[in-house]
Design a protein around this nucleic acid. Structure first.
Lengths: 152, 152
DNA sequence: CTCGACTTAGTCGTGCACAACTTAATCGAG
DNA sequence: CTCGATTAAGTTGTGCACGACTAAGTCGAG
């Protein structure tokens, strides 16, 4: 309900503060920054954490399917997965039935990390400080936005 | 084939698709990707475009004030500004009254680029496809989220 | 005036993101 | 079966982002 004193949403404004894109960019970096100290404790970066979320849901995922889930290119995932492998959280092996494909699997350490990670979304949800209604509304709007912007 | 396609059983708090943080991260990258071809025409990256937005509003801004406006560190801005300078869009000069500070100023080409950039927010706003009410609601939620997550 | 604390830009190292490209494996029309 | 098209993963180069650090200028208490 920002009216009068707050707004001048001119058509085609080049004002930084008017732009949804900047609010989005700033919010995304602020949230990632908030995750950083928590994920440091787990030895993960934020994109690595997202990969682990996928693997904790369903193990033995191809690089292709990881990319589909996270909307990331193999050129981003391949080095990231190599770092996760060096850190002992995943293994990679070519699939026998299709040698082009690589199955990414959790190691014991990768599986074990899940329990320590359970506190993370709770802490972040707390820091976000949105009501359940606001959280749901934000997710809905962001998914709509992503959908529109991706297609079109 | 055999394994499930894209079903999402909502059971745990570590589900990727339940997390606002992922919706935010994906939306931010999707919007930036949408900007890319438009900004390529102007010879700008998305963060460079944000810097230009600030300079088009108010010229002769210090690196410090750019950082405050965009929430970016000097370690991000310094190389970015150097690239803008190489591309002929800005000049940098130490302030006479405080030699620590650097004033970033638009060149003629930098000023001229503003008119060509006017079409960009219109095209993006169109691609986002949100109603004015949804756009306002998203901005409000994202600013609240950023505020909460940054402080706290 | 002096010297230590603070401020401002900037450098360096690490890790994303992504476009363009490469390599290797699989598929499929003829 | 064959060979060109397609697909999967990875490599390379560029440009953010940010933490840790550095160099240089400014300020202020004594």
């Amino acid at each position: 309900m920002e009216t009068a004193a707050n707004t001048l949403p001119a058509e085609g404004s080049l004002q930084l503060r008017d732009q949804l894109c900047f609010a989005l960019y700033a919010a995304s970096r602020a949230v990632t920054a908030r995750y950083r100290p928590l994920l440091d404790e787990l030895g993960l970066t934020y994109p690595q954490y997202l990969v682990m979320l996928v693997l904790w849901e369903r193990d033995a995922v191809s690089v292709r399917d990881l990319g589909a889930a996270l909307q990331l290119e193999s050129s981003t995932l391949s080095p990231l997965l190599k770092r996760l492998e060096v850190n002992g959280l995943v293994r990679r092996e070519r699939r026998a039935d299709d040698e082009r494909s690589v199955a990414v699997r959790l190691t014991g350490a990768g599986v074990d990390l899940r329990e320590r990670a359970r506190a993370v979304p709770l802490a972040i949800g707390d820091a976000m400080g949105l009501t359940p209604e606001q959280d749901a509304a934000a997710k809905q709007l962001l998914r709509l936005l992503t959908e529109n912007v991706t297609r079109g």
